[in-house]
């Protein structure tokens, strides 16, 4: 959490040289974090799986023989074969093309929601802590009120009305998720606002908003990185749940959730319609959770989970 703690390294080096000890190479902060992350084997595995999934979503469409919008009426509900690698569904749509597109859709929504959540939470939480007074009270009141509102129900109502437009679904998801991390950011920022460098910046005449974005937010960076990765997992899970019960992404567009929803009806007679989207979805959420876990250990100076460095 405290990124600034590592500045001490350079001082050590200077002292070491003065004392005539063998010179120790200074490790940059990024190299240190990379080394700590890379030592965590599950996290590296998660990163590799996640990158493969992203590549699959981006480039998998190039390999597909069929488009996800063009049904092949000669192959209805066919299992995986040489022509349709993942099989087809009841209307003859190629499941490989659908999975690639659904993965793309789920990823875009998740990354948009996670990025938006992180930015909004950082700005609202940190500025509420810095400006104090009425602004802080109102921001906290809004956050606490949003916590008791039946958010999943409102999400279902709005996104059902939107007719399956993914951008609106993403905006709704953003609207019901940003305030939990904002509360956490605020808790951390009220200790950062008491630091000397914040006071120094204020006496130097730096504008309030610049202090928030230049001095407070970067110092809670590790929390924000983790908020982002966990936000991706959360958004994917909400989006698939929503699409599964039929209130999210709707035909002709597909997401992993709506694909699993279609596959659920024929789970015993045509299980491949469940296997492939469910596999992609599980790999996505689990790999992202492993990355988040590895990042948490790498960024936390007190963590001893992976040895010393």
């Amino acid at each position: 959490m405290a990124l600034t703690e590592y500045e001490g390294d350079s001082v050590d080096t200077v002292e070491a040289v003065e004392a005539g000890l063998p010179r120790r190479k200074r490790v940059s902060r990024r190299a240190l974090y990379t080394r700590r992350f890379m030592r965590n084997r599950p996290a590296v595995g998660g990163l590799v799986i996640f990158l493969i999934l992203v590549l699959f979503a981006l480039l998998g469409g190039q390999l597909a023989k069929y488009n996800y919008l063009d049904p092949d009426f000669l192959a209805l509900t066919k299992g995986p074969n040489g022509d349709h690698w993942f099989g087809t569904d009841q209307s003859g749509t190629d499941l490989y093309a659908e999975t690639v597109h659904g993965l793309q859709r789920s990823l875009i929504i998740a990354i948009f929601v996670a990025a938006g959540t992180t930015i909004l939470a950082a700005i609202v939480g940190a500025s509420a802590a810095y400006f104090r007074g009425a602004y802080e009270r109102i921001a906290l009141m809004v956050i606490h009120f949003l916590m008791v509102v039946p958010s999943f129900l409102i999400l279902s109502l709005v996104s059902n009305k939107s007719g399956g437009n993914w951008a609106i679904i993403a905006l709704c998801l953003l609207a019901i998720t940003w305030f939990y991390p904002a509360r956490t950011v605020w808790t951390l920022a009220i200790s950062v606002r008491e630091r000397e460098y914040v006071t120094a910046a204020r006496y130097m005449g730096v504008r309030g908003f610049s202090i928030v974005t230049r001095h407070i937010v970067p110092n809670i960076g590790s929390l924000l990185v983790i908020t982002f990765t966990l936000g991706v997992v959360g958004a994917v899970l909400s989006e698939t749940a929503l699409s599964f019960i039929g209130f999210g992404v709707k035909a002709p567009d597909v997401s992993l959730g709506s694909l699993i929803g279609t596959g659920a009806d024929t789970i015993t007679s045509a299980p491949w319609m469940f296997y492939f989207p469910a596999g992609a979805l599980t790999l996505l959420t689990v790999s992202m959770a492993l990355i988040a876990d590895g990042l948490r250990d790498a960024l936390d100076p007190t963590s001893a989970a992976g040895g010393r460095a």
């Binding site: 899970l237 698939t240 699993i260 789970i267 015993t268 469910a278 979805l281 599980t282 959420t285 959770a289």
Partner: peptide, 24 residues
Amino acid sequence: QAASIVTLNIPVVVAALGIVLLAV
């Protein structure tokens, strides 16, 4: 810990349908 990370992040839909398949 490994089992927890996996089960915590398996989507409910996937877990439920997977168990339906196994039970059948």
